[in-house]
Simulated assay, not measured.
Amino acid sequence: MTMDFNSPDFGTRTPAPKSGPPSVWKQSAVLVGGFAILLYVIEIVDVISGQNVQNAGVTPRTLDGLWGILFAPVLHDDWGHLIANTIPVLILGYLVLVSGIARGLAATGIIWVIGGVGTWLFAGSNSNHVGASVLIFGWVTYLLVRGFFTRSFTQILIGVAV
Rank of each mutant, 00 (worst) to 15 (best):
G65L: 02
V47M: 12
V45I: 15
I37W: 01
A106T: 11
S23G: 09
L95H: 06
V58F: 07
I37T: 10
A56T: 04
I110R: 07
R103A: 15
G124I: 04
T2N: 14
L39V: 08
N55D: 11
S125Q: 12
R61K: 14
Q27H: 02
N126Q: 15
V32P: 01
W139I: 06
S19Q: 15
H81N: 12
L70Y: 07
A132E: 02
V113I: 15
I83Y: 03
T62R: 09
G11I: 11
P73Y: 10
V98Y: 13
V89N: 02
G138D: 03
H81Y: 14
R13S: 13
N52H: 13
F153C: 00
E43S: 06
G65F: 06
Q51T: 10
G147C: 05
T59N: 11
V45K: 01
G65A: 00
L143K: 04
N52C: 01
F137K: 07
F137M: 11
A16M: 12
I91L: 14
F5D: 02
R151H: 10
H81C: 04
W112N: 04
V130Q: 05
A106E: 07
I42D: 05
E43N: 11
T12A: 09
G159T: 00
V74C: 02
S127F: 07
L92R: 03
F153H: 02
A72E: 00
G80R: 07
A102P: 00
F5Y: 15
L39D: 10
P60Y: 13
P17F: 14
I114Q: 04
I158V: 14
V162L: 14
V117F: 08
S152V: 07
G118P: 06
N6Y: 14
V74P: 02
H81S: 11
I111A: 04
I114E: 01
T86Y: 11
I69H: 03
I48Q: 09
G115I: 08
F137H: 04
L66P: 09
F71K: 09
D9P: 00
G118E: 06
L90H: 08
V113A: 12
V45Y: 11
S28W: 09
L38G: 10
S99W: 07
L135R: 03
D77C: 02
G159L: 00
H76S: 13
A29L: 15
L143P: 05
S133E: 10
S99V: 02
G147F: 08
G124L: 08
I114F: 13
M3Y: 14
F35N: 01
R13E: 11
V53Q: 00
F137E: 03
V24P: 07
V74M: 12
Y94S: 06
D78P: 00
T150G: 03
